[in-house]
């Protein structure tokens, strides 16, 4: 029983991370029907934003009070990236065939990864490094904030990492704020209207372009929080971390029903728990850590076969 609870908690903390990122995919998809492949990179840049903030402003100080500032740094980095990306890469392709923005998204993703890898510790095309930042070509240790990281907590036979509590807590708070934003603010209702029917929403006087920017920004905020959480959980970050995380988060969004915000959160948790349980309970050589990513994708394929609209998605009606 202890192992089950242990894996459940592991799964929930992993799933919270996926859920935070998945919201970004689902919000953008709900409005634009665009799979923003580069969203994983927004998450990665969030983590680097937090790291940079800590290194530049606090010079290795790991007191708890630095954490909110780091989160703000992460959010600024992520949101800037996402908004620029929307403005310069996706907006010009609003009416292009569906293949075009997908390919653009891959280009953006590769570009951002490389930008961080090559130019994190220097101004582009120079070797000038004003803040003495570390080289991003390999893993960089992430500041270990007091209280939030420290030694794990033991409850009975179950070990709970402090960072896991932070991640799950972050998801709970973010979900609540997100729910409030979408259902209780004017902007959020505008967003719902645009995702129902962009043209009609425009006729009703809603600034659709602005709503789209807000959708990208909203996803970026949650991705930034996830970036910080990932840094705290893993103790280090690197420029590649966005790829697999993004892929998993998208999987989570599809499992929950893409376009549906509650679905993204649920899908993230389901995916995380599935992975954790697969590591523990699939017997023989195909269980264990090395195969957990494979099982995650098997889950995706099963969902596509048996419930293509996802757990919480509504069935689409064909149009003639």
């Amino acid at each position: 029983m202890d192992t089950f609870i242990q894996q459940l908690i592991n799964g929930l903390s992993l799933g919270s991370l996926y859920a935070l990122i998945a919201v970004g995919y689902t919000v953008v998809y709900g409005i634009l029907q665009l799979i923003n492949f580069a969203h994983g990179e927004v998450f990665m840049i969030g983590a680097f934003g937090a790291l940079t903030t800590s290194l530049v402003l606090f010079n290795g100080n790991t007191a708890l009070w630095t954490l909110p500032v780091m989160i703000i740094g992460a959010v600024v980095a992520s949101v800037t990236t996402a908004v620029l990306m929307e403005r310069f890469a996706y907006r010009p392709l609003r009416n292009a065939p569906r293949l075009a923005p997908l390919i653009t998204a891959i280009g953006v993703s590769v570009f951002l990864q490389e930008l961080v890898r090559l130019n994190y510790n220097k101004v582009p095309f120079t070797s000038w490094n004003p803040f003495n930042l570390p080289d991003a070509k390999s893993r960089i240790p992430f500041p270990q904030i007091d209280v939030v990281t420290g030694p794990a907590i033991q409850v009975g036979g179950v070990t709970i990492q402090r960072a896991a509590i932070f991640t799950i807590g972050a998801l709970v708070i973010c979900s609540a704020l997100l729910w409030y934003f979408i259902n209780r603010t004017k902007m959020g209702r505008g967003m719902q209207a645009v995702s129902q029917d962009a043209d009609t929403a425009r006729l009703m006087g809603i600034n659709v372009d602005r709503i789209i920017v807000v959708a990208f920004a909203l996803g970026a905020v949650l991705a930034a929080v996830a970036g910080v959480a990932q840094g705290l959980q893993n103790n280090n970050i690197d420029f590649r971390m966005g790829f697999l995380a993004g892929l998993k988060a998208f999987t989570a969004a599809v499992i929950g029903g893409i376009g549906n915000v509650e679905g993204a959160v649920l899908g993230g948790l389901v995916l995380g728990v599935t992975e954790a349980m697969a590591t523990q309970y699939i017997p023989g050589q195909f269980g264990g850590g090395p195969w957990k990513d494979v099982w995650a994708f098997v889950l995706l394929i099963l969902v596509l076969v048996f419930r293509p609209q996802g757990l919480l998605g509504a069935k689409e009606v064909d149009r003639a």
């Binding site: 653009t104 953006v108 590769v110 490389e114």
Partner: peptide, 12 residues
């Protein structure tokens, strides 16, 4: 880096 940029610019 250039490759990523190339994809974006081509599509644009």
């Amino acid at each position: 880096l250039l490759f990523g940029l190339l994809l974006v610019l081509m599509m644009r």
